[in-house]
């Protein structure tokens, strides 16, 4: 009896699966309704045809969908993460960049319109999300570019630069680029790019500047030391490990010996 029941069950399951297949088949209606049917890539599922962005490339792309006009809230998802973008091919990233660019243009237009009409722009974090996605995408592309260049040429292929001193004797990162005019003929460049320093005034400035930085550091050190001493005097049972973690540069052993760290209570 049990075997018979099982057989009936199996046949039922088969029936269900067959039903599923009949549901999955592409009806002519679906094919005509979608503009892009990538039969070689998309699986034969109905849901695959629902989420296709309409490709109407005209000036109305600068505006949000009409259903979102004048609404107080527009719900959107999160931004693209780097890990997700790393899984995509170069051509996919290229397409996604332009999708994001259009989205950003649309959002900026809507923001401007809302500002003109004295209305609140709904969900302004959308702009940040798009910006974040674009930054992530660019960094992923750059990663790939760097890896490719390192493999092929042994160099990063990034824009070259070097650490140089300016007229005040402070270091900064100078990013180099190509010029039409040779360097020895380019008088304007030499006018605006003065590297290196010298002279008594600059040296005095640097001396005072270093003193200022050193004083700032010294004050920070003393501040931390005093703070720990006060903590110890107020809370004799203070968690030493936590204090060490919070103030890593302070020597606790020397502070324990200080009079300031003793506190107004009878020592145990």
């Amino acid at each position: 009896m049990a075997a018979l029941m099982k057989a009936v069950h199996v046949s039922k399951n088969m029936n269900n699966i067959m039903k599923l297949f009949t549901n999955l088949s592409l009806t002519p209606n679906v094919i005509t309704s979608s503009k892009h049917v990538f039969l070689h890539r998309t699986p034969a599922l109905h849901c695959a045809f629902i989420h296709i962005t309409p490709d109407n490339r005209d000036l109305m792309e600068f505006f949000d969908e009409p259903k979102n006009w004048g609404r107080n809230e527009v719900k959107v998802g999160r931004s693209w993460r780097k890990d997700e973008l790393r899984l995509k091919s170069n051509s996919d990233l290229h397409k996604l960049w332009y999708v994001l660019l259009k989205e950003r243009n649309m959002l900026m237009t809507m923001e401007e319109v809302c500002k003109d009409e004295n209305k609140i722009f709904p969900n302004p974090e959308r702009l940040d999300k798009v910006k974040d996605s674009m930054n992530n995408l660019e960094s992923v592309v750059r990663e790939r570019n760097r890896a490719y260049h390192m493999l092929e040429t042994g160099e990063t292929g990034e824009r070259p630069g070097k650490l140089v001193y300016n007229c005040l004797g402070l270091k900064f990162y100078h990013r180099m680029h190509q010029y039409i005019i040779p360097k020895y003929m380019n008088r304007k460049w030499h006018k605006w790019h003065k590297f290196g320093f010298g002279g008594f005034a600059t040296r005095r400035f640097l001396r005072l500047y270093r003193e200022k930085i050193w004083n700032q550091k010294r004050r920070a050190r003393n501040r931390d030391k005093n703070r720990v001493a006060v903590l110890m005097s107020k809370f004799p049972n203070v968690d030493i490990e936590a204090v060490k973690q919070h103030f890593p540069n302070v020597d606790l052993e020397t502070i324990k010996t200080l009079k300031r760290a003793r506190g107004h209570h009878v020592p145990e």
Partner: peptide
């Protein structure tokens, strides 16, 4: 031709009664 659309035609106010 391009006509700038009226985006706030049926906009709900900030102090909408329902809300």
């Amino acid at each position: 031709s391009f006509v700038f659309p009226d985006l706030f035609k049926d906009a709900k106010g900030e102090f909408d009664e329902e809300i």
